[in-house]
């Protein structure tokens, strides 16, 4: 475990020191009643980075993402976004300040059309501006043009995931939180999802990603945090985390 400790010390800060840190969690604690999901967690995300949160089921990854947007109960520590304290803000205020969450399981409004789903994601935009953003997303998500007036609940899982990501992007967030985007999708569709994340990287979208598929996630990420039982076990540049030692540690934790 000593090597993990070194990793954490040396590279818990952004890969590119010149880039401005936009999200900073300090000593964050999340608890559901007596159950502590996240303990004393420090995390930073710099502009333009892709940061991945790895860990076994129940490690606290999703709790962490939800805590950032105020959907899970924050009981300690603080979170700042672009220098503003958002620890006590309501979810809608945080979302409107520029952080978007693609929740686990996609959670589209299944009774509504694809366009209405996106309209809700871009509710802060004026109608003309929304239409422009909607058009702009068409080249990344051709599904939007084809199925704009289809009921979202009738789309396939892969299509729904694309709509869920598009819904989070349409409001032009400066930080995108992706919770398990490949979960429950066929391998060929998983490829498509990772292609989309790579394309978002080229477009300089800052992403905090929670992903079970550690190998693929580390390939596209700049940095990563490995969580276990609510605490960060290791942190560092994605390339370093990819070493088998870390992966073994991670898998070992997963088995425990």
């Amino acid at each position: 475990m000593s090597s993990l400790g070194n990793q954490k010390d040396s590279s818990a800060s952004p890969a590119n020191p010149a880039a401005e840190v936009i999200l900073r969690a300090t000593g964050l604690a999340v608890a559901y009643g007596a159950v502590e999901a996240v303990r004393n967690l420090d995390l930073e995300v710099a502009a333009g980075e892709i940061v991945v949160l790895l860990g076994a089921n129940g490690a606290g990854k999703s709790s962490m993402l939800n805590a950032i947007v105020g959907l899970s109960p924050r009981v300690g520590g603080s979170i700042t976004f672009e220098g503003h304290d958002i620890t006590r803000k309501s979810t809608e205020m945080i979302v409107r300040s520029g952080i978007s969450l693609v929740p686990e399981g996609r959670r589209l409004f299944s009774n509504m059309t694809v366009r209405e789903n996106l309209r809700l994601g871009g509710a802060a935009l004026g109608l003309a501006e929304f239409e422009r953003e909607f058009e702009r997303l068409h080249d990344l998500f051709p599904i939007l043009r084809k199925r704009a007036d289809s009921q979202a609940g009738l789309l396939s899982g892969g299509e729904q995931q694309q709509v869920a990501i598009a819904r989070a992007l349409v409001g032009r967030p400066r930080l995108l939180l992706l919770d398990e985007p490949s979960l429950g999708l066929a391998p060929i569709i998983v490829n498509r999802v990772f292609e989309i994340i790579e394309e978002l990287r080229r477009r300089k979208v800052t992403i905090l990603l929670v992903e079970q598929n550690a190998e693929r996630a580390l390939k596209i990420a700049d940095r990563g945090y490995v969580m276990s039982n609510g605490v960060v076990e290791a942190a560092g540049r994605a390339a370093d985390l990819q070493t088998s030692a870390i992966e073994n540690a991670y898998l070992g934790t997963a088995g425990a």
């Binding site: 959907l71 979810t91 809608e92 979302v95 978007s100 959670r107 809700l120 994601g121 509710a123 802060a124």
Partner: peptide
């Protein structure tokens, strides 16, 4: 939850 995550008040 999804409505809140989309910024619906």
């Amino acid at each position: 939850i999804a409505a809140q995550a989309s910024g619906v008040d």
